[in-house]
């Protein structure tokens, strides 16, 4: 008996070996840099050189700076427009493809096409759209103008990425253009995981397709919608590449599209405004916000699991 137990322990010791490479690399490349940033967030380090520990001053500054809050609001606002479009479109598509009456075909092809924009690097997407959407000379406005001309109407060109009224929405729409395919795939996976027997049983009971949708599909798809929305929020709070590469810093639209991550970049990596200590504090405040969202997420799903 005793011998066997020690043998199990011996087996279990293999766990250390299996996990060791991960732990070593993880400590070096993940934990150390994060701790280093934490340390820096309590200093007044600007660019390089010596820095003094200044306690929570940086944090106080983050929380009292209205531009930080504007950046947070911009981020959330862009995210909301994005998620409504993205999830709404995905939801409609899911309805169409899961409809028991129409039995639409071609899902395999459509979902690949819808997913396509998601795999392209943001650098390429940003260059592509900032060229296409140029106010005066971009192909988008030129096409719209020629359509207007066709009807003899006059088109007042919209400054898609240069005006603060539209820039945020433009970014949001591009963002949802990139991501709706992803959401659609997830919702569809949810629908397909529903046992077909439910549908058949319901059909035999004479339930109409709207009843089936409302009583079976919807309740089962709800948690997935929540999951998509919340993971998207966590990602959305870190939004950076698209607005950063598309909106010029001297543009009047900048203030309305600056995201938290761009705010961080301004103080972390931009010449003339580099204040590494402060940027580190911004990073941690953002982290705490994301943590809160994640905890709420876990709560929600734990709750679901208990039911």
């Amino acid at each position: 008996m005793k011998k066997k137990k020690s043998k199990v322990t011996a087996y279990n010791n293999w766990g250390y070996a299996f996990v060791a490479p991960f732990v070593i690399v993880f400590c070096i490349f993940s934990i150390y840099p994060v701790l280093r940033t934490l340390y820096l967030s309590f200093t007044n380090l600007k660019v390089v050189g010596n820095a003094d520990i200044i306690g929570f001053k940086n944090y106080a500054r983050v929380l009292t700076d209205k531009f930080f809050w504007t950046a947070l609001w911009n981020t959330v606002r862009i995210w909301i427009v994005n998620i409504v479009l993205q999830l709404g479109l995905a939801f409609l598509l899911m309805m169409v493809f899961s409809d028991v009456k129409y039995k639409m075909r071609g899902l395999a092809v459509f979902r690949i096409i819808y997913y396509l924009p998601n795999i392209i690097a943001a650098t390429s997407i940003a260059f592509l759209f900032s060229t296409l959407l140029d106010w005066r000379y971009g192909t988008f406005n030129i096409i719209i103008k020629s359509i207007y001309d066709l009807f003899g109407a006059k088109y007042n060109p919209v400054n898609w990425i240069g005006s603060s009224a539209t820039a945020g929405y433009t970014v949001a729409v591009i963002q949802s253009w990139m991501w709706f395919g992803n959401s659609f795939l997830m919702l569809m996976a949810g629908v397909q995981s529903i046992n077909r027997d439910y549908f058949e049983a319901a059909a035999i009971d004479g339930a109409g397709r709207w009843t089936i949708f409302g009583k079976i599909t919807l309740p089962l798809i709800k948690p997935i919608m929540m999951y998509v929305a919340i993971t998207s929020l966590i990602g959305g709070l870190q939004m950076f590449d698209l607005p950063f590469l598309m909106i010029e810093t001297a543009s009047s639209a900048y203030g309305s599209v600056q995201t938290v991550m761009m705010y961080l970049y301004k103080f972390g990596f931009t010449t003339g405004t580099t204040q590494v200590g402060y940027a580190s504090a911004v990073a941690y405040v953002l982290f705490l916000i994301i943590l809160t969202v994640s905890v709420v997420e876990l709560r929600l799903f734990r709750g679901k699991g208990d039911k």
């Binding site: 400054n159 603060s164 001297a250 543009s251 009047s252 203030g255 931009t270 003339g272």
Partner: peptide, 22 residues
């Protein structure tokens, strides 16, 4: 000065906001 880029950008943002009537 070393502040020029950031201040020029901010001034540019202000000008942009006025000229477009924002």
């Amino acid at each position: 000065t070393q502040y020029d880029k950031a201040i020029d950008d901010a001034w540019g943002q202000a000008i942009g906001a006025i000229k477009t009537g924002e």
